[in-house]
Nucleic acid binder design. Structure first.
Lengths: 174, 174
DNA sequence: CTCATGGACGTTATACTATAACGTTTGAGG
DNA sequence: CCTCAAACGTTATAGTATAACGTCCATGAG
């Protein structure tokens, strides 16, 4: 049982690099599948990657409006649908919010660790866990098509900085 | 790795028995904790237990209205909040719907198997799985407080009856 | 080159899910 | 009986998501 690299971003990490990496990966994924990464879709992907905290559709909508362009809910929801379909972002069901995919293009079974204190959400792709879940379901004759695995709690950084306090920032970007 | 009993209800099972068992358990849980299982709360619990398919709050609201009483959203949401707090029902995040708890009063880590064909949702309480998830999180220094584990797919009965077809009934009671 | 086509997007309206805020009723204990 | 808090009624509104239809435009067939 090897210890993996911590999936949470370091505190002072170069986030611009996260964004540019994600955009480059998106270009490639779309290239390969013949899909069109239009300016709007690209912009929404940037917004999702604005941080490692899941962001709600209407928060993105507000930012799109700030761009000077007109925007209505379907604008953002259509882009989100596209990005979800391409596997470039994930939806966090327990937050009604969206977060960038850390491993676009790779076929993976994903679990999310959602810090209730800082809002940061990390993507785990623990194959053992995915396998264990698949086995458990199979024992009951159940054929899994999709999985929602969202674990809320406290990340190590927040636990270190606020050992016994309430949370300061609930997380989902507003 | 012992094979457990199938958590899905049999097709011709005596559902009235499910309901009365659930109500009796609720009485006991509330008795023990000093909470009041009022007629309204009891009625909402009955509605949740109307089937093994998760049901939405507004569907319950419609049924409450059918009872002849007046009812507004807070009526049902308050009852749901109470029942969730008592551990008598669960919320299915991926469906925005509610389902009865199969093991009220027991401290358990729960996974849901949601059949996309018939809508039936089974509650798994696989401790191995819960432990595996806890270990995986702990390896990354993450302290889990709550879990959402919802697996969608096809139950054995639906797979047997419709080997290669689309689904007939999407699930959440309307 | 023209035009038919389909995908992307704009726009309006609406559905669905959930909670805030405040007033009234009720029931258990003093 | 009276008081107090919990439960509930009621109105309004917030938050999340989609339906439906029209326009624009790039592309490829003719």
């Amino acid at each position: 049982m090897a210890k993996r690299q911590n999936p949470f971003p370091r505190s002072g990490h170069d986030h611009d690099r996260c964004v540019s990496t994600a955009l480059a990966a998106a270009e490639e994924v779309c290239e390969r599948s013949g899909e069109r990464l239009t300016p709007l879709r690209r912009r929404v992907l940037e917004l999702v990657w604005g941080s490692h905290k899941p962001i709600g559709a209407y928060a993105m909508l507000d930012q799109l409006k700030g761009d000077g362009k007109s925007a209505a809910p379907p604008t953002v929801y259509r882009a989100l649908e596209f990005l979800l379909g391409c596997g470039l972002i994930h939806r966090i069901e327990s937050l009604n919010a969206y977060v960038g995919c850390s491993h676009p293009g790779e076929n993976h079974v994903t679990q999310f660790l959602i810090c209730k204190a800082c809002g940061t959400t990390a993507e785990l792709d623990d194959r053992r866990l995915g396998d264990a879940i698949g086995r458990s379901a199979a024992e009951h004759g159940f054929n899994i098509v999709s999985r929602v695995i969202e674990l809320s709690g406290t990340c190590s950084r927040c636990r270190a900085s606020q050992p016994r306090e309430g949370q300061s920032d609930k997380g989902v970007a507003v």
